[in-house]
Amino acid sequence: MQQLKVVIIGAGIGGLTAGVALSRAGFEVEIYDRVRELRPAGAAISVWSNGIKVLNSLGLGGAVSSIGGRMDRMEYRTQNGDLLNAIDLNPLVQTVGQRPYPVARTDLQGMLLDAFPGEVKLNSRCVGVEETETGVTATFEDGHRATGDLVIAADGVRSVLREYVLGYPVEPEYGGYVNWNGLVPISEDLAPADTWAIYVGDFKRASMMPVAGNRFYFFFDVPMPKEKTPELGDIRSDLSQFFLGWAGPVQRLIERLDPETTNRVLIHDVGPIDRMVRGRVALLGDSAHATCPDLGQGGCQAMEDAYVLTQFLLTTNVSVQDALQRYEAERHARTCAIVEKARKRAEQIHGKDPDITRQWYDQLATEKPTDVTDSIAKTILGGPLK
């Protein structure tokens, strides 16, 4: 297809990855974001092998490996610290052909910004789009208009443009739990430096995984009715109460976290929705398929979206609309399945049905480690890059 001009709304992981991919494919790209300053949502993210393969395809493999943590094992432990399962991740790497890398979101965002040749236009709140036979224009609150051959709506879980594509509003759905996350220095009295350690019990989780800079990315999950969340207060006090009596490493983690840099997030998801494209406008990433983070696939699916969309724009010469329809046909079933699987996983972990969660605890103690890695591999290998 001839050189196109692409307007991207949103400079998160999906929007930036799309900007890099489309620019390197030879297209003219403009990226806009409503915020005054780019600040990542969350402390870190686990980029599984399917996402890393997309970054590899963009020539960013060396860069992402330098900001990623080396994660060789997973450990599940009870709230008392007893080992439930130790999982070697090398069989996963051998099966899928690529290591995963947990990365700090600030580092990942910085890497993608460095790779994008243009300037992200901040403080630009998109309020709508207008299509013609020959193009599409994104309109902004300040009166600016950006016209291109297509618009990519990568504007997140609370997307402004999702209603335009669908024809009706879709509100994010509360996932049933609150997540606290941040970064702390790696220390052997918390967990081994190459291990993703996960403590489970009482339908809660406490977790640490390594990222670059000799740091652990940590998170805590607590199921909670949404109407109770306004009662949350001081982060350390709340976590100390929620995880009272849990194992020593969990107590030390609560003591060492910095409340000022710890995020508290009410988990929401979006979808499955029935379409991702309307005319010259395509939804990408969380605007189309925000997931509960329990599969670690949210960012990876946005990266896959960016890769597939770029490939169809490069290889389809019928029309922009045809390329976008092919993108939707390729991505819709996979992303809907991931949303549903992540929601089901969130419910299993966080006690929506207490008996199911207790059965999962029992399963953790008895299943073969390769059953775990085989399940992760199946999700990874369902993507566009084998």
Rank of each mutant, 00 (worst) to 15 (best):
R145A: 13
D155Y: 03
H144P: 01
G148D: 07
G148W: 05
V160I: 15
V170T: 13
W180A: 06
R162Y: 13
Y174P: 03
P169R: 09
L150D: 03
G175C: 02
A146I: 02
V157S: 01
I152P: 02
D149H: 10
N179D: 15
Y168N: 12
L161Y: 12
Y177H: 15
S159V: 07
Y177S: 09
G156P: 04
L150V: 05
N181Y: 12
G182D: 00
S159T: 09
G175D: 02
Y164S: 06
N179C: 15
V157I: 14
S159C: 06
L150G: 01
R162A: 13
R162F: 08
G148K: 04
V160M: 14
E173M: 11
R162V: 05
L161F: 13
G176P: 03
A154H: 08
R158I: 12
V157R: 08
E163H: 14
Y177I: 06
L150P: 00
V160N: 14
P172C: 05
L166S: 10
N181T: 12
L161V: 10
G176F: 02
D149T: 02
V160E: 12
A153H: 04
T147P: 04
A146R: 02
P172Y: 06
Y164M: 06
Y164A: 07
G182K: 01
E173A: 13
W180N: 04
G148Y: 01
I152M: 08
G156R: 04
E163Y: 13
Y174W: 04
H144I: 08
G176A: 03
Y164L: 00
R145K: 15
E163A: 15
N179Y: 14
V160R: 15
S159F: 03
E171F: 11
E173P: 02
G148M: 00
E171W: 11
Y164V: 06
A153C: 01
A154S: 12
R145G: 10
V160W: 08
G148H: 07
P172R: 05
L150M: 12
W180K: 02
V178A: 09
V170H: 06
N179R: 14
V151D: 11
V178F: 05
G156E: 01
G148F: 07
R162I: 11
L161S: 12
G143Q: 07
S159I: 09
S159W: 03
G148E: 06
I152Y: 05
Y164H: 15
Y174L: 01
Y164G: 07
G167N: 13
W180P: 03
V178S: 01
P172I: 09
E173H: 12
R158N: 15
V178I: 15
Y164E: 11
G143R: 05
G175K: 01
L161Q: 11
I152S: 02
T147E: 14
Y177D: 05
N181D: 15
I152T: 09
N181E: 13
T147Q: 10
E173I: 11
Y177W: 13
G156F: 02
R145N: 14
